[in-house]
Nucleic acid binder design. Sequence first.
DNA 1: GTCTATATCCGGATAGAC
DNA 2: GTCTATCCGGATATAGAC
Lengths: 195, 195
Amino acid sequence: MARKAGSHADITGPAIRAAALRLFARSGYAAVSMRQIAAEVGVGAGALYLYTPDKQTLLFDLMQEHMTALLAAWEAVDKGSTPQDHLQAFVAFHIDFHIDRPDAVFLAYMELRNLSPGNFAAIEALRRRYENQLQSILENGSGTGAFKIDDARITTMALIAMLAGIHVWYRDGGRLSRDRIQTIYRELVRRTVSP
Amino acid sequence: MARKAGSHADITGPAIRAAALRLFARSGYAAVSMRQIAAEVGVGAGALYLYTPDKQTLLFDLMQEHMTALLAAWEAVDKGSTPQDHLQAFVAFHIDFHIDRPDAVFLAYMELRNLSPGNFAAIEALRRRYENQLQSILENGSGTGAFKIDDARITTMALIAMLAGIHVWYRDGGRLSRDRIQTIYRELVRRTVSP
DNA sequence: GTCTATATCCGGATAGAC
DNA sequence: GTCTATCCGGATATAGAC
């Protein structure tokens, strides 16, 4: 396809998203200017508006992509047969997926309040769908007697919060290997629901 | 003491802090203007600078007060004698203290990145002191055999994250009473560390 | 102690040249 | 497709009147 000299749409679009993700995660949506993002990419501020109608949509797209990728990746996981296997698979998946995407995770947890009401509702619905995956596992296992659970909804929120907390202290190359972290958290989760 | 007509320093100072706390928690530090805070209090924007040198210090003071109040309140708690009692007291205290201060809790967790480096270090040190309270309980109980714990630091972070997650879903007058929440989380924590 | 007015700067978003 | 220049609004913080 013919293209004008100086055109870089194929790389500029992704570069803008990557820069926005990094900067939003580091400094917060409200504290980052479109000029900063443009400077990071190496284009003028005006050029950004060829790729997004406005700053709000840029934030929303980043969050929506993260959440849909999360749900799609979980769909593709081999979940085993027993409720115990199912739960262990969820924990392993969650840790792996989140540890590889610290910026997107941070954004999805911290910038909800900077979404417009409509965008907020859309992201919340996706998050709720993900939470419900775990809640179903717990309810199934509770039904069969594989788990002992007081309140499935609260336990769901407690476990998700516990796992989400990893991003607070995890650093690449830190004291614990990824495998070790997986082992510790699998055991923590197993204990919280074991009969 | 004599005072000019129109003087309200004794109420304006606290009113500014209360308004800033509410607005920062609701919309985020970067998204709230000094004009908004002043309007909420019912004074002009310029008057704020009689009570704080700048916006950053206002944020820092709110966070520092919250953290020192948290540590002081925990010092005053009757902690029981056994490691199990000690841990249960921590959980009960944490839930009570945090459920009563949703705005301050939100601020302390969400606005760390909007602190200047020096202010950030000060707040982080206070947070670390609080985390260490729990970690000591776990290490003591692990030493006596009262608890079975893989990694005390990770378990500390996991439990704090789990408890902190309450603020995500808790609403006054919601499905669960405060007592019921305390009961559920005490049991969750007990299971995580029981031998 | 508070208000009004203002200095100074930076924000998002757009228009038109190349 | 990108750049430069710009509109326009709003930000923090200060100065001086009352």
